[in-house]
Simulated scan of single mutants.
Amino acid sequence: MPDDLLDRLARVVAPLGTLVEAVRLTGGLFATTHRVTLADGSRVVVKTAPTTTGTLLTYEHRLVRSEALVYGRVADRPDLLMPRLLRFDESGADLPGDVVVAEHLDGVPWQDAGFGPVAEDPRAARAQRDLGAFIARLHTVTGDRFGYVGAVDAPGGAADPAGSRLHGDTWPEAFGRMVEAVLHDAGRWGVDLRPGDVRRVLARHHDALAQVTTPVLVHGDLWPGNLFVAADGALVGVIDPERALWADPLMELVGADQFGRGDVAPGLRAGHEQVAPLDLESSGARVRFLLYRLYMSAILHVECVPRAYAGDFGDWYRRTSGELLAWTLDALDS
C-alpha cells in the first residue's frame, strides 16, 4: 500500500485511534474498502466512494452518504445487524469523496463461508431462513416519501442534483423516475433497453404500483457478499446498504436474487413468515415483482458498459442481464 494512502487513512481514523495496519478488502464492484486495525486491537472499516463520477449511473451518485444515513437511521435497532457508524466525512480533506467509517463485524461473508447448496447444507438453510426474518424486521422501518435514501433523506437538499430527483410522494411517481433515470443512462452509453416497451408496461401496470402506500426501508443488495454468518449459518451481520431506498418491500426480494427468474426461495419465505406475512400470490404483487425484476435487469445490463466488464465474466454478465430483461418484458406483456 502506498505510504501516502496509509497516511491519509491514518488521518481519517485518528478521532478513533492510531492506525497500525490497513488491508484493502476485495469483492465489491463499487466503492473502495479497507479494514483498519487500531493500536488498541480494535478494527474498523473505511469505505470511500469512487473518485470519478463520469461512469456512475444516475442512482449511484453519493451512495456512500446513503450508507451513512441508513446506519444512522437503524442505530437503535441491534436486531437489524448493521454496524455502528463511527464517522462520516464528506469534506474530501483526507480522502477524495465521501468516507464512511464503521465498526468491523464478526463472522465471515456468506459467499466465503464454504457452505454447500441450501438444499444440502443445514448451515446454508439456516442462513436463508435468518435472511428472511431479517428482511421482515427491516421492513418495520418506515419513511415519509418514496425513493432512494440519499434523495429523500439528505439534509438541506444536499443530494446530488441527478440523484435528488429519484423520489416522489407516491410509489408510481418515484418508481417511474427511477426507471426513466436508467433509460437515460442507457441512452448515454448506447445500450438498448427497448425503452418503448419498458414505458408501455410501466404505464400499463400503474395501478399495481399504486397499491403500495407505505414506504419501507429496503436494503436493495442482500446478496451473500453483504451477509455475515457464523459457523453454524446464523446471520450475524449485514453491510453495504448504500443502494437502500424507501420502497415496496417486494423490491427487497429481487435485490437478494438479482439474476433470478424463479419464485422466492422457500427457506427465505419461511423465515420471513415467522415474523410477518408475505404476499406473493395476489395479482398486484406478482406484477410488481416482475416490474422490479425489469428494473434490476435494466441496471445490470447498462452498468456493463461504463464499468467495462471484460472477459468471460463480462460476456456472461451482458448476455444474462439482456436475456433477463427480455424475459421480464415478455412476462409483463403476457
Rank of each mutant, 00 (worst) to 15 (best):
E21L: 13
A22N: 14
R24Q: 15
G27S: 06
G27Y: 06
G27K: 01
G27A: 08
H34W: 13
V36S: 12
L38K: 14
S42H: 14
T48R: 15
T52M: 15
T53C: 09
G54P: 05
L57W: 01
L57F: 00
Y59W: 15
R62N: 12
R65A: 14
S66N: 04
Y71R: 10
R73L: 09
D79A: 06
R87Y: 10
V100N: 15
V101G: 07
A102K: 12
D106W: 09
D106G: 14
D106A: 14
P109T: 14
W110A: 14
G114L: 05
F115M: 08
F115S: 05
A124F: 02
R129H: 08
L131I: 03
A133R: 03
F134D: 00
I135G: 02
V141D: 02
G147K: 01
A151W: 02
V152N: 09
P155C: 09
A159Y: 04
A159Q: 05
G163Y: 02
G163I: 09
G163S: 11
S164V: 13
H167M: 11
H167G: 15
G168S: 02
T170C: 04
M178E: 11
V182H: 00
W189P: 04
G190W: 00
G196F: 04
G196T: 10
R199K: 04
R199P: 02
H205W: 11
L209G: 07
V212E: 09
V212N: 06
T213E: 13
W223H: 14
G225H: 00
N226E: 05
F228G: 12
A231S: 13
G237M: 06
V238L: 01
V238P: 01
V238K: 00
P241F: 00
P241M: 02
A244P: 01
A247C: 14
L250E: 02
G255A: 05
Q258G: 14
G260R: 09
D263L: 09
D263F: 10
R269T: 04
G271L: 02
H272D: 00
Q274E: 15
L278T: 05
D279W: 10
G284Y: 04
G284C: 03
R286M: 07
L291C: 09
Y292H: 08
L294A: 07
S297D: 13
L300S: 03
H301D: 13
E303Y: 10
P306K: 03
R307S: 11
R307K: 12
D312N: 14
F313N: 07
E323T: 15
W327C: 10
T328Y: 06
T328M: 08
L329I: 03
A331I: 06
